[in-house]
Write a protein that binds this DNA or RNA. Structure first.
Length: 785
RNA sequence: UGGGGGAUAGUUUAAUCGGCAGAACACCUGACUCUGGAUCAGGCAGUUGGGGUUCGAAUCCCUGUCCCCCAGCCA
């Protein structure tokens, strides 16, 4: 783990914690599904993140079932989750846990919170609690039960556990802050009464902990270091921290949030997926159109393909929607190297080779792999007088650039002969083409194409009588719109279901060699896509699922353009009222002294309103400014430095808490004003001051910023930098002027802050302008001039 | 509306805490090909708007805009 470059923000956090020894170098993550549904591709992102981090940092990842709600959870889901995580290629060994195993500890810890006066039993009903919670703009009101004694709370809580009360009679709540702007902190619920048999603990409990309480404690119990969850839990972090700060000390687990995955043309919420299953819009959780892990597996996608996809989409905090093409492409990239090629005809058109002897069958050698795949192997394919080719490989009226078969034209049968279409037989009634009568060129087998045949495509085919009839299921996106969750007003996501999301071809033909294909084996049907043998195969009938099709450059060209481009939303023109500056304006309106100082700054001291505004928002800032000015600094410098640097460092504190005084800053600014220090040097000094490293005078002395670099020294450093970057120098000379900033940065790093960047740039321009002495290809030699 | 989070090519994302805006997918050209696949070469295209500080800003300051989350005894 040397390089942090390219790490997502969570890995970077973990990396820093490992470096700093925050957890003695330990890394423990967890994947915490609730067993109330099947895992989907969004979970795969989380699984890859949590297990991936554990692998990369030599840590562990726990599989924990977050089962705190008996009403929705079930063993079936536990088993499906185990199966899916394992299938994705992750191993948790003995690190499998259940929140339900912690019920007793959770309960004891809750009693402790009660004893410490941090939790209470509330006897308000659901409606009452809701009313007392307030709204996002109004604070909540305390429940009349909030001030019960510890004894009473303890007694009630124990009787809750003992089953003395019906559902909803009481709850245990944390004593939070009812006025907290974060709604989650307004006395969050810790326990509720549920007389409901739990799938693991049966009737042992009738009170169940809430997520916000059970989750952090479970993390702590297991020694988790980094608790990674999705963005919608950001507000819950406050309770997470509250719980663990009260029950455990540092080092303790901390929560980090990332954006969940959204995929175009599908839905990703468990509720909606459950609906699709229960209402039979799909055949089950493992319907090949479902974004579930089970569905993807049935579809024929490999775990490696899914992991490749997860790697490519990355991890961030930005809400995003990933294009379905990204998934499809990862799947293809994975399958390309592992699926042998075979021929299949999905929509057959009969071809008779008129000059091929009836009754003769010729078995031709055919490679399984194209040249560019590093695998070998072949099978034999039967050729006979009667064949099928793809209907779409023949055209009576071909579009421009057509390279397949036309009347009178030739085409290569893949792995076999070149044929010519001599006659087209049509159904007199419908006009439909029913048969092609062709002649083959016996001399064309294995011969490379002659110039005249060069532009023909090699099409797939099967021998009509020898081919194996199979069922083929072609899957397409489940929904007709990219985001079914956000359709028109009042429309359910189900109204966007794609009626053509599956097409079953009851009788397609494949090479006889596939007769022995096992369930789950994957092939590329040449020019069609990747297919897998479905578990519905049985008896004499094989069933193939299309996993993903192949890009078809010709088809997309014919269709016109590529995918539609989403228009960015137009931004309304500016206007409106700024809240922070508004606030300052209100302050000034109520404070004549501030108002007069604002007027003075703008009218007689030459500041713009934008500069004067932040300076006059409070009296302490104005007083600070006065001290800076008294020390002799110019108004302009004082205003800029206070606005851009001091106010940032003060954030959330008072001016008095700054580790330096106005006089210090004034002194520093004087040196800038009179040229003693460069701006760059002053920034450096200021940074030290802000870090509490002493007075400006002391810092200048300590860093050796007094005095200056001689022009000669500087010129030498410039030359040295240019010598180290010959390629960049060449680029610059050929016109990439914006490299000057990079050169400047390099020299400044070498010279330290006391060099004047303006002087550096002047020297750089000079040296770079000098002609490369006739050795443009060897710019290294330019260094010592 | 209070609070929390977010905004970099069409999409998903990098950029060593102020110094070369880089990649992948998509799209377009071309080469190659017994898959209109793959591969290879090239191209199009970006810092949410406006001001400021600085030699230099995606990054710092000010000020707008847009998007997401929170008022379950779900997780």
């Amino acid at each position: 783990m040397e390089r942090r470059e390219g790490m997502d923000f969570i890995r970077e956090r973990v990396w820093r914690d490992v470096q700093s020894g925050r957890y003695s170098g330990r890394v423990a993550t967890r994947f915490p599904p609730e067993p109330n549904g099947y895992l989907h591709i969004g979970h795969a992102k989380s699984i890859a993140l949590n297990f991936g981090i554990a692998e990369e940092f030599g840590g562990v990842c726990h599989l924990r079932f977050d089962d705190t709600n008996p009403e929705t959870e079930d063993m079936e889901y536990v088993e499906s989750i185990q199966r899916d995580v394992r299938w994705l290629g992750y191993e948790w060994a003995d690190k499998q846990f259940f929140a339900s195993d912690y019920y007793e500890q959770l309960y004891q810890l809750a009693e402790r919170l009660i004893v410490e006066g941090k939790a209470y039993v509330d006897s308000l009903d659901e409606e009452g609690i809701r009313r007392c919670r307030g709204t996002v703009t109004e604070p909540g009101q305390p429940s009349p039960y909030r001030d019960r004694s510890v004894e009473e709370n303890l007694d009630l809580f124990r009787r809750m556990r003992a089953g003395e009360f019906p559902d909803g009679a009481h709850v245990l709540r944390a004593k939070g802050d009812l006025a907290a702007p974060n709604m989650k902190m307004r006395d969050p619920l810790l326990y509720r009464i549920r007389h409901f048999a739990h799938y693991r603990t049966g009737n042992a409990w009738c009170i169940y902990p809430m997520y916000d309480y059970a989750h952090p404690v479970s993390d702590a119990l297991e020694g988790i270091t980094h608790s990674i969850c999705t963005l919608e839990f950001e507000n819950n972090r406050a309770i997470y921290d509250w719980t663990l700060d009260n029950l455990y000390g540092e080092p303790r687990p901390h929560q980090y949030e990332f954006a969940r995955l959204n995929l175009d043309y599908t839905v990703m919420s468990k509720r909606k997926l459950l609906q699709l299953v229960e209402e039979k819009h799909v055949s089950g959780w493992d319907d090949p159109r479902m974004p579930t892990i089970a569905g993807l597996r049935r579809r024929g996608v490999t775990p490696e393909g899914i992991r490749l996809f997860c790697r490519r989409i990355g991890v961030d905090k930005t809400n995003s929607r990933v294009q379905i093409e990204a998934l499809e492409n990862a799947i293809r990239d994975d399958l390309n190297a592992r699926a042998p090629r075979v021929m299949a005809v999905l929509r057959p058109l009969r071809v008779t080779l008129t000059n091929y002897p009836a009754g003769q069958v010729e078995w031709l050698e055919a490679e399984y792999w194209p040249r560019d795949i590093d695998q070998t192997g072949s099978r034999r394919v039967p050729l006979a007088r009667a064949l099928y080719i793809e209907r779409s490989d023949f055209s009576l009226a071909p579009p421009e650039d057509w390279t397949r078969l036309v009347p009178g034209g030739e085409v290569r049968l893949r792995h076999a002969y070149v044929i010519r279409c001599d006659e087209v037989v049509t159904d007199p009634a419908s006009g439909e083409v029913v048969e092609l009568r062709c002649s083959y060129d016996p001399d064309s087998l294995g011969k490379s194409a002659t110039a005249s045949r060069k532009r023909s495509t090699a099409i797939q085919w099967v021998a009509a009588d020898e081919a194996l009839p199979v069922e083929v299921r072609l899957y397409d996106r489940l929904f007709t719109v990219p985001n079914p969750d956000e359709g028109e007003e009042g429309k359910s996501f189900k109204e966007y279901l794609n009626p053509g999301s599956v097409e079953v071809i009851g009788r397609a033909y494949v090479e006889p060699v596939l007769a022995e294909a096992a369930v789950g084996s994957r092939y590329q049907f040449v020019r069609h896509g990747y297919f897998v043998v479905d578990s519905d195969s049985g008896g004499s009938l094989l069933v193939f699922n299309r996993i993903v099709d192949l890009p078809d450059a010709f088809a997309s060209k014919l269709a016109g353009k590529g995918r539609e481009i989403r228009q960015p939303v137009a931004q309304p023109a500016e206007g409106g009222v700024g809240s922070i500056s508004d606030e300052r304006e209100r302050v000034r309106a109520a404070n004549p002294w501030l108002a007069s100082r604002y007027a003075e700054l703008t009218e007689t001291l030459g500041l713009t309103p934008e500069q004067a505004d932040p300076l006059t928002g409070s009296e302490e800032v104005v007083r600070f400014l006065d001290v800076v000015l008294a020390a002799g600094a110019s108004v302009r410098a004082a205003a800029n430095w206070i606005n851009n640097d001091v106010l940032r460092d003060r954030k959330g504190r008072s001016m008095a808490e700054l580790p330096f005084s106005g006089a210090d800053l004034g002194e520093l600014l004087c040196w800038v004003d009179d040229g003693t220090l460069t701006t760059a040097a002053a920034k450096r000094v200021y940074a030290e001051m802000a870090a509490g490293q002493g007075t400006p005078r002391a810092i200048v002395a300590r860093l050796g910023l007094d005095g200056s670099v001689s022009e000669g020294e500087l010129a030498a450093m410039v030359a040295q930098v240019l010598a180290m970057l010959p390629a960049k120098v060449a680029e610059y000379r050929s016109g990439r002027q914006n490299l000057l900033g990079m050169f400047t940065g390099q020299v400044m790093r070498l010279a330290g802050a006391k060099a004047d960047p303006r002087q550096v740039q002047q020297l750089l321009r000079q040296q770079l302008a000098e002609e490369p002495t006739g050795c443009g290809e060897h710019p290294t030699e330019m260094s010592d001039r």
